[in-house]
Design a protein around this nucleic acid. Structure first.
Lengths: 189, 189
DNA sequence: CAAAAACGTTGACCTGGGTCAACATTTACA
DNA sequence: TGTAAATGTTGACCCAGGTCAACGTTTTTG
């Protein structure tokens, strides 16, 4: 039940088995159906999810009604509506399971108790933030500077799974191009 | 010399005067000329800058040679090529003073010594990362979903200074539109 | 397992905003 | 403070990629 989570932690910090168990004791299993919304647009996100199985995404809609995806979370990683979770304000985005998923959930209070009391967990949180920031900056540079073809090449190079694993529609909403354009580009490769 | 920095810290944590002085003792004054490059594209960024006076920007060039700005740092804030600073890899971007500036500089080693030994400073770093992450996510959503006019409106609403304070060219490279388009939009407002 | 709904593919068409160029204006620093 | 360099403005033109629609294919679920 906690083996993937323990792997995640030990890859990023030096935690004893006792510390691992202390951390894991605050998580509980949550099952989600395909397409289930875990956090709605006007809700406050109250927990952090670790993905044992399945796939989550964070998305919203632009003014003209097109979905915009900012993140996909895959098996073995953490995923939440982090701005809402940090600020405890309404999310202004959706957290959704896009497949039948098995998740480990920790609520806001326990999460920050762990951050404040377990140095290894503070380090995990720091690394999540650092990596999240670094990825976001890359995306900002990439998406201003790339045309549609370059975006697809970038996806193939740095996110090998996700063009294979996800629908064209999902991938397009992440890349900031239309599904038609993605389809046309794939046909030419 | 350290008054702005002390304000920044006390607004974000509970630090005694002694702690403030300990933190400040690791910073030294650096002067930068207008347009001076502080970190080059292939350099590793070795320090963090606090802006006492002036203005910094982080930018790179797209394949077709257009500048792309990902961040402006103004008086009273921190600014560095953070991905490079964290990973100690080449920056793949430029950190530049766009005005004659007075900066406070702390090197990588001292910075992380403070993070590891002064809880108030660890909290400052955590808040910088959290806020950086939140801003980046907003930008990702905004820049996928907005047309040129919406981007300008967004800038006026959330970054009131920066359309006034900076050249059109700079602002346009941040908004991901051409200077011509920005000029045309401003003319119609 | 069949009907319906969702998704993918492709052609025709259109437009937001980019590029280029010429000129006006502002800014920088010798 | 004068002049060269940088920036801003505006018109003309163009094209990457969006939209829409029609149709084929795959997926979902009663």
């Amino acid at each position: 039940m906690f083996s993937l989570l323990k792997t995640f932690i030990t890859e990023r910090s030096e935690a004893s088995e006792a510390t691992l168990n202390l951390i894991c004791s605050h998580f509980k299993i949550v099952k989600a159906k395909r397409n289930e919304i875990l956090v709605g647009f006007d809700e406050v996100c109250n927990g952090y999810y670790f993905i044992n199985e399945g796939c989550l995404r964070l998305f919203t809609y632009s003014d003209d009604g097109n979905p915009i995806t900012r993140y996909f979370g895959f098996k073995g990683g953490f995923c939440t509506a982090l701005p809402s979770f940090i600020q405890q304000k309404s999310a202004q985005e959706y957290l959704q399971a896009i497949e039948k998923s098995e998740l480990l959930y920790i609520n806001h209070k326990h999460f920050f108790q762990l951050v404040d009391s377990v140095p290894q967990f503070a380090m995990i949180y720091r690394e999540i933030l650092e990596q999240g920031f670094i990825n976001a900056q890359k995306r900002i540079y990439g998406f201003q500077g790339f045309d549609a073809l370059q975006k697809v090449r970038w996806a193939i190079e740095f996110q090998p799974d996700f063009l294979m694993r996800l629908s064209n529609k999902m991938a397009a909403s992440y890349l900031g191009i239309s599904p038609s354009t993605l389809s046309r580009i794939k046909a030419k490769m």
